[in-house]
């Protein structure tokens, strides 16, 4: 086995933890914990970016690490926690699919995305290319999280986690997106969050619930 530099080992470990957190989010039924897990994912992402910045010496990456920290570890989780408190949504109802079933699909998704990422990572020239598969897996698992939830709140967290995966993928494949894109995405996410927050209140006023099944029932009426 060829010796891998320690920094890369550390990055790989962070990637693996990211994947683990995605699974934890998939299994988690409490919305508050879900948000905390999301914050942890952000922190991991921030750490990975910092490490990569230190290794490659790219100044841009330091900025994006700071941005990640500010938006995904501090701002969004606080916002979400406040929303949860004000809306009183602490628990997601029983998920659409039982947990072991979801996990099984999750594992299959990981296999799928690893297979999918093999050609991509063969193309990429970065040292972290093997993590591309994990990034794809994180995106797809976040998608699955969104699919299997009923509450709008958990779906939003799933959506945000998906963005984490995208960010990580870009970082490991090409050492990050251009700065301007990154800024734009960060801003987008924040705005989207605010809009969704307003939306939640609207939904609740209309239906007395954040359960999305209520929306489905209304679907037929127009």
């Amino acid at each position: 086995m060829a010796a891998t530099p320690f920094v890369l080992q550390l990055l790989n470990a962070l990637a693996a933890l990211l994947l683990l957190l995605s699974f934890a989010m998939l299994a988690q039924r409490r919305v508050v914990t879900l948000v905390n897990l999301f914050a942890m994912q952000g922190a991991l992402l921030c750490a990975a970016t910092l490490l990569l910045a230190w290794r490659t010496g790219e100044g841009n990456l330091y900025v994006s690490a700071a941005l990640t920290f500010a938006v995904k570890v501090v701002a969004l989780p606080r916002l979400l926690h406040r929303l949860i408190r004000r809306l009183g949504v602490y628990w997601d109802t029983e998920p659409l699919l039982n947990i072991p079933g979801t996990m099984l699909i999750g594992v299959l998704i990981v296999v799928f995305s690893f297979g999918l990422a093999q050609p991509i990572s063969a193309l990429a020239s970065t040292a972290t290319r093997s993590a591309v598969g994990i990034a794809v897996a994180v995106i797809l698992l976040a998608f699955l999280t969104m699919i299997t939830r009923r509450k709008a709140m958990s779906q939003v967290v799933g959506f945000l986690s998906m963005e984490n995966g995208l960010f990580f993928g870009a970082m490991s494949a090409t050492y990050g997106m251009p700065m301007i894109v990154e800024l734009g995405v960060a801003l987008d996410v924040l705005v989207a969050m605010l809009v969704l927050g307003v939306f939640f209140f609207q939904i609740r006023e209309q239906f007395d619930s954040l359960d999305l099944e209520k929306l489905e029932e209304r679907g037929g009426e127009r």
Partner: peptide, 9 residues
């Protein structure tokens, strides 16, 4: 690909 991950599972 795929098979070499699925079969160990």
């Amino acid at each position: 690909p795929f098979v070499n991950m699925l079969l160990p599972l």
